[in-house]
Design a binder for these strands. Structure first.
Lengths: 219, 219
DNA sequence: TCAAAAGTGTTGGCTATACACCCATGG
DNA sequence: CCATGGGTGTATAGCCAACACTTTTGA
């Protein structure tokens, strides 16, 4: 406010990239997976990386996130998404200084991505391994608390066994069945649905169903 | 990754501004205050605003935060600072689309700022009132938990009465004396210092002193 | 009828909150 | 000696993790 410096205020700014942790629960592999793309262009051409784009002028973070998802063939027009953290290491991109805003998103289709386990991702381009590591703790903290995130990840109906698998993938440790059942029972908008399906040897899981806000396409 | 679009990747990006919630505990007014500057240039010339600058190419968020603090005359070369959230409403700046990364910082001097109470700030330029409102809850949650933040705000030595005032300013509700004393007793690196100073009519407060990492200048 | 998978119950520890009571100081 | 501000102790409720026990299924 004192000593205004117009030239400083109009200096060229860093680029802003939006990098997306695209998530998906694989019912068969019983794990949360991360959507990875193979970079087609330099730098790091041919190497796996998080889907990311440079933010366009005037673009909202969510729009950029959807473009990034398009890079791995996920084209849902209204994916569940949210903001995580902003990384500012100036050397994280060899093309030049680039801010990275990390977003999470839940994919509804497999697209063209490689889906790798979130807890043991392969080596990634840029500082993406570090981004994944830092954000996994945040995602674990959001599970069962941020219902927008949780509902997207579990889908409209899920078995109690799925909840255990999701918890294990995100936190790295298995959850206690009893405690998790009580957590689920306490979540608003979630009810136990008497129907159950057999999956293997033991007793079938109970099913939980989210209510309200149109599951997909009914609105 | 599929269908790479080099032109899109090199599109012009939004500007990035860094806006700082400069904080200070006023021992006399017994409240946490927010440092405000009067804008010297358009837009919103003459109106109060958070100190903010446009991020330069290759600049780290912390560096930009220090430049912003310079705008209100705070020149500490190593202020305590941290990241809050990133705002992306495209119309928040009439000059054009601008991302805003909100930081907190603790000022060691009064500089040239207007220091207003954090809990009742005046009308501010841009969407700064909204930023302050959103971030105050985050700051309240950091108190007594994020020790870097807490120690900076309280200073190296503080009275128990100050702790009550800080808590009230940030959360909006008075703290219970007894419970707060126990919280303080449980914080690592903080010890009760038998010395005490009289301030008014009643019994003098106990003093608490932070240990370790050189208070200021002893290292 | 047994092992695997799932659901229910119980306990102990930690935290948060409220409140009652005792202590030190200035007028 | 009493109002004012400060410190200590205690009781309660809620949350969370751990673990024991029961139920349902497939083989």
């Amino acid at each position: 406010m004192t000593a205004p410096d117009p030239t400083a205020d109009q200096a060229e700014t860093s680029y802003v990239s939006v990098d997306v942790l695209a998530l998906r629960f694989d019912h068969d592999r019983r794990a949360v997976q991360l959507g990875i793309g193979i970079r087609a262009t330099a730098p790091f051409a041919g190497r796996p990386a998080l889907p990311g784009v440079l933010l366009r002028r005037g673009e909202r973070l969510g729009e950029a996130g959807r473009r990034a998802l398009g890079k791995i063939g996920v084209t849902d027009p209204t994916p569940a998404m949210g903001q995580l953290i902003t990384f500012d290491e100036p050397n994280r991109d060899p093309r030049g200084p680039t801010l990275s805003v990390a977003l999470w998103a839940v994919a509804d289709s497999t697209g063209t991505a490689d889906w790798v386990p979130l807890d043991t991702p392969p080596a990634l381009a840029f500082d993406h391994a570090r981004i994944v590591a830092d954000c996994r703790d945040l995602l674990a903290g959001m599970l069962w608390r941020d219902l927008h995130f949780t509902r997207a990840l579990t889908g409209p109906v899920f078995a109690a066994a799925d909840a255990l698998d999701v918890h294990a993938s995100l936190t790295g440790r298995p959850a206690d069945r009893g405690n998790l059942n009580r957590v689920l029972a306490g979540l608003p908008g979630l009810t136990k649905d008497g129907v159950q399906v057999a999956r293997g040897r033991g007793r079938p899981s109970a099913l939980w169903r989210w209510q309200d806000d149109a599951p997909d396409g009914t609105a």
